[in-house]
Design a protein around this nucleic acid. Structure first.
Lengths: 235, 235
DNA sequence: TAACACACGTGACAC
DNA sequence: TGTGTCACGTGTGTT
């Protein structure tokens, strides 16, 4: 290792601080006592030009990378003095977040192919303080025009208040996520059963029902699902 | 420039290929003719250790950066041989895409505070070929329980078929985007007016209507909008 | 060979 | 003070 470096340095010294490629080292050591032989001058010039190109190419490469890093800084609204490493860490995090976010919207909110019902007692402790029980309701079923109305009537008959509702229907299937509140006067934890049963009958009505009237003008083939969303939020 | 490098190289040669910091250069040049004076040996060792630390710190820094870059490679499912620069370019693009995507979902689909109606003749030429005119309808208004039903009845009375619907209601306001098709037998381009008028009366009914019954159990204050979505898609 | 990309060690600067 | 970050030039491998 050391002799290589010594050679290298010696040659560098002769060429005025710029290193030639190590492959020419032998030639150089020979010619170093007969400096500026014509062939060597030519090859030195070539090598010099090569090093120069190399240097500039590397500079351009650095600039390219840094320019992209600066773009990322702007996109994440980071200070221009943010560390390269921490910047990249933030970028990784951001990409993960955004990926999951869009995935959640496109996938989790889309209805499943099979009918499903899920009623959960909300574990949010803060919502249990005000004398109400919070349930999170979620179900998938075949869509029909009066599903929403039926659902509301069902909840009303159970004396439950809809705090939040997320109803997604695509390609004839519907996914419904609701957060409902029930007075502790009328309801206990066992009301989960009431809800489940009510939803079950709702789904049964759904599966027997016909599909939305305006859906199939022409052929009978089922329309392909579109990757688009349609929302109703109630708060 | 050149003399600096020469000094640098000279010292490098003395220290066996490892460079000391330039601040010690003067000391070194003086001591180089009286090698290994005790104080200098000590300071050399210190400098050497410093350089060593520096070297390793830099190595760790590089590793940190590269590890993040590799994470990004995985997140974008890029080949491990993908260029740093092009990788970062892809990351920039991806972040932009995802940002816009979520922005579109969260903002564009959210209802505006003011009532709005927009009816456009779809410029999609392919949809005009099959003897039907395609309209893109979009409006924002105050939400009410029977808005959806009214909307459907309105479109039915106009003999228009809903190809796609995106209904978003949040915080008591509703945004509705629909793509409707009309037979050329019954409709022309001027039907845009019919649609607009029908929607106008729909909105007027909406603004006079009461808000959804189950919304305000406790205080009268308007519930803050939640950043969540609720969809109904019809195809 | 030439062009390109990468890791490395180093000097400089900041806190 | 040292500890961390950056840009640079260079050696080396790959295409």
């Amino acid at each position: 290792m050391q002799p290589e470096i010594s050679d290298h340095i010696f040659y560098s010294f002769l060429t005025g601080g710029l290193c030639a490629s190590s492959s020419t080292t032998s030639t150089t050591t020979t010619s170093s006592f007969y400096p500026f032989a014509i062939e060597d001058t030519v090859s030195q010039e070539k090598a010099l030009a090569a090093q120069r190109n190399h240097k500039e190419a590397e500079r351009r490469r650095r600039e390219r990378i840094n320019s992209h890093l600066n773009k990322l800084r702007k996109l994440l609204s980071c200070n221009s003095k943010t560390d390269k490493a921490t910047l990249l860490a933030k970028v990784v995090q951001r990409v993960k977040e955004l990926k999951q976010e869009t995935l959640q919207i496109t996938d989790e909110t889309l209805p499943s192919e099979t009918d499903e019902i899920s009623v959960l007692n909300s574990e949010d402790s803060s919502s249990n303080e005000d004398g109400r029980i919070i349930f999170k309701v979620s179900f998938c079923c075949e869509d029909r025009p009066d599903l929403l109305q039926d659902l509301m009537e069902t909840l009303e008959s159970l004396q439950m208040e809809t705090i939040f509702a997320d109803l997604t229907t695509v390609g004839g299937r519907s996914r419904n996520v609701l957060v409902v509140a029930a007075d502790k006067e009328h309801h206990g934890v066992e009301s989960v059963q009431f809800l489940q049963n009510a939803l079950k009958s709702l789904l049964e009505r759904s599966s027997k029902s016909v599909m939305m009237g305006h859906g199939g003008g022409g052929g009978g083939e089922r329309l392909k699902r579109r990757r688009a969303l349609d929302h109703i939020i109630m708060v």
